[in-house]
């Protein structure tokens, strides 16, 4: 059963189509890769799915029948569709642990009166425990007291994913999780993504690093000029004429990506 369906989705910015009639069907439990040249509309797609933008037309359905297009970011996250950011989005002045604690907002709801009277202590303690588990799971246990702004880039990106995981998503949208990483950092992140996937989380991933995309994803959708160009398993995509043309002037999309 598809867990996320995108149907006829378009997004215009002042007459310019950033997304043009895009259709996607994401199966529960898959890792889907979204690739395409710069400006193809990949991040816009994530922004529309996660509620940052309202689509100009089209539908997004979650778990069969629930329409989530046009809902606010926080509501969509509350339903279990959570995204990460292309930029390194963290609470820079919070510790690693605090970053994750705050992200567990949805699962540690306490009203203000219980907070003021001190009755919320137990929930908060339990929440901290769970956050600690996530920090350990993401391999950041030894850095939990460190301020997020002081982490090396690779760990910051991992923390970004940890924040998303803390929301206990069913669908996770990863926006270029490997950006700016050294090869070792990349390997570590790929392992992490696999681990997250093994928890039963469906993953939708935008990434320029083709080798990693081919390695991780079972199925790949290619966007170009805001339109869905082609879809298929990695082996098919690698040799697809249209895809190669889209990455203009490069014969081999594998080499195109690693140098970028």
């Amino acid at each position: 059963m598809p867990i996320l369906e995108v149907e006829g989705l378009s997004k215009y910015f002042g007459g310019l189509a950033a997304l043009n009639d895009v259709n996607l069907s994401i199966q529960e439990g898959e890792i889907r890769g979204i690739i395409g040249p710069n400006g193809a509309g990949k991040t816009t797609l994530f922004n529309v799915i996660s509620g940052v933008y309202r689509p100009s037309s089209g539908q997004i359905r979650y778990q069969g029948k629930t329409r989530i297009d046009g809902l606010s970011s926080s509501r969509i996250a509350g339903m279990g569709v959570v995204r990460t950011f292309q930029r390194t989005a963290l609470y820079h002045h919070f510790s690693v642990l605090k970053n994750v604690i705050v992200a567990r907002h949805l699962h540690a709801k306490e009203n203000i009166f219980r907070v003021i009277s001190g009755l919320a202590k137990k929930t908060e303690e339990k929440n901290t425990e769970k956050a600690l588990e996530i920090v350990e799971f993401m391999g950041l246990g030894h850095l939990k007291e460190e301020l997020a702004e002081n982490l090396p880039h690779g760990h910051q990106r991992a923390l970004g994913v940890a924040i998303a995981i803390a929301c206990e998503p069913k669908v996770l949208l990863l926006d270029e999780p490997l950006t700016g990483m050294t090869p070792t950092e990349k390997d570590r992140m790929i392992d992490l993504i696999r681990k997250v996937h093994q928890q039963g989380i469906t993953i939708l991933m935008v990434e320029h690093d083709m080798r990693s995309v081919m390695e991780l994803c079972g199925y790949i959708s290619v966007l170009d000029f805001g339109m869905l160009l082609v879809e298929g398993p990695p082996a098919e995509i690698q040799n697809n004429e249209m895809v190669i043309n889209a990455y203009l002037g490069t014969e081999d999309i594998l080499s195109a990506s690693t140098s970028a």
Binding site: S73, S74, F85, Y91, V102, L106, I163, A164
Partner: peptide, 10 residues
């Protein structure tokens, strides 16, 4: 600190 991130976590 980061309203966009905060909204994305619900």
């Amino acid at each position: 600190m980061d309203p966009e991130l905060a909204a994305s976590t619900g």
